[in-house]
Amino acid sequence: MQILEGEKVTKYFGGLAAVSNVDFYVGQGEVVGLIGPNGAGKTTLFNLISASLVPKPGVIKFKGKNITGKKPHKICRMGIARTFQTVKIFTNMPVLQNVLAGSFFGTSPGMSSADAAREASESLEFVGLSDMAALPARDLTLANQKRLEVARAMATRPELLLLDELMAGLNATEITEGMELVKKIRDKGITIVMIEHVMKAIMNVCDRIIVLHHGEKIAEGTPQEIATSKKVIEVYLGE
């Protein structure tokens, strides 16, 4: 079964179509890469899936259910979590409290403090930030802030995780660690859609890749297919 489906998803900003008529699907347990040149509409598509924006026209289905037009917090509680292109952590709160907010609000409403705290520490351990639990989040390095954002998203117990440029701004070692983290999340059975510019990461961890250009889907396929696709190469070299 497909965990996520989009039909004719479209979004206009003024007269400009940021995302235009995109059909897509994501299978249960898949890691799907979303690539394309700057301004291709990748983040807009993420915003549409996570309900920051509402497609017009178009329909988005999660586990077969139409979720178009729902509020972001509802979408999150249904099981879709996300990270942001520019990190949006709660900078003045301690690291653990960031994650705790995720486990408190992103899951079922009846979660007790003790359970939330336990799950939050588990999430922190999962991304390897346990040692920094008490630090204010603003004191973390960029790589760790991104890990924290992943931990906070994981704490909401997602079935689908949207990662927006997890590797951007990281050095080579950190990118390798990031790739490991993505694989670890996949191994937990969580479906992943990731926007990424670091080709090595995309080629390495994705099962399937969707290419956007000027808001339209221009190609789709396995990493090998995409790497050899004439159309995709043209788009990237034509820039």
Partner: peptide, 10 residues
């Protein structure tokens, strides 16, 4: 701290 992020964690 960040309204958008708060909405997206539920």
């Amino acid at each position: 701290e960040n309204e958008e992020a708060a909405a997206h964690i539920g």
